[in-house]
Simulated assay, not measured.
Amino acid sequence: MGMAACLEIEDLCFRYHDGTEALKGVSLSIQKEEKVAILGPNGAGKSTLLLHLNGIHLPQQGVVRVGGKEINSDNERQVRSKVGLVFQDPDDQVFSPTVWDDVAFGPLNMGLERAEIEKRVADALQSVRMWEFRSRAPHHLSYGQKKRVAIAGVLAMDPEIIVLDEPTAFLDPSGQEDLFEILENLHREGRTIIIATHDVDMAAMWATSIIILKDGQILAQGTTKLLVREDLVKAAGLRFPLVSQVFEEAAAGLGQPLPRTVKEGKKLLFKLTGH
């Protein structure tokens, strides 16, 4: 994992037109090549925070920096080529007549040469295993396939940071596995991945860094060990990962830290049984 911060936020505040105060002085730093899970209850401000990461919302107060540069109205379009955002509902993002047209939309608006656009679209669709569907109308795709097309549309912009809002929502188990294989491949390419999620099990298994939000403020930022801190989990309206719940008494009896993933649970089980 790199040591340089690729994204920094200082004292970010945001209030909607109806007076709802969604963010109240959020400050955080994300390092290059991290896998970050942002957790919190409904209304915590997760989606509002994500919309600030690529300039869809500009700060009303505070500063957001990407690669050391402050996001403002002059450079918000440039920022979107560095930070790609995948919305929770792919129907908000996938709207062109064909899959190919949809993925080409961003590169076309970047003014790239035709050959470069074609290469980016092909690479993006192949990376999410949707190349064979390139001539298909998006409304004829399954929900999971639309989700992959939405990711491909972001990839075609070649961003350094990829942000996903509730990426596993409404996906079946097979679709979730496909999604995380795609995310792992993107991370191996050196990209920073940020997701907002309610899924503590997935966050424990996948993330290198956890950010917990509540009522527009950060309760904590750190490793996945935060997910087994009882006071913090309770305050955030979350729960322990299921593996942690299963082994809670056994871990306490052995004086061992709570396992957070299936792999850690298997190790503790071996200690308990000897095989």
Rank of each mutant, 00 (worst) to 15 (best):
S73V: 15
K46A: 07
L49N: 07
H57G: 03
G67W: 03
V66R: 00
V36N: 07
V66L: 06
G68S: 14
L50S: 00
S47T: 15
V63E: 08
L39T: 08
K69G: 08
V64N: 01
G40S: 10
G43Y: 10
L49E: 06
H52R: 06
T48I: 09
N54M: 02
G45R: 05
G43F: 10
N42C: 11
H52Q: 08
A37W: 04
P41K: 15
Q61I: 12
N72G: 14
G67H: 10
G40Q: 02
G45Q: 08
R65V: 03
K35A: 11
G68N: 14
Q61L: 11
P59G: 03
V36C: 07
I71A: 04
Q61K: 14
G40H: 03
L50T: 00
K35P: 07
V36L: 10
L51R: 11
K46Y: 05
K46T: 07
L51S: 06
L53A: 01
L53V: 02
N42T: 15
G40T: 08
A44K: 04
G45D: 09
I71W: 01
Q61G: 12
P41R: 15
G55E: 01
T48N: 08
L58N: 07
E70S: 11
L49I: 13
H52I: 01
G62V: 10
V36M: 10
I38L: 09
V66K: 01
K35T: 14
P41E: 15
G55M: 01
A37H: 08
S47D: 08
G40I: 04
G68R: 12
A44H: 04
L53W: 01
N72C: 13
S47Q: 07
A44P: 04
S73M: 13
L39H: 06
R65T: 03
P59Y: 02
Q61N: 13
G45W: 01
V36G: 04
E70R: 08
L39P: 03
A44R: 03
L58M: 09
L49A: 09
S73N: 15
K35H: 10
N72W: 12
N72P: 11
Q60A: 12
V63G: 02
G62C: 11
N42L: 11
I56S: 02
A37M: 10
I71N: 01
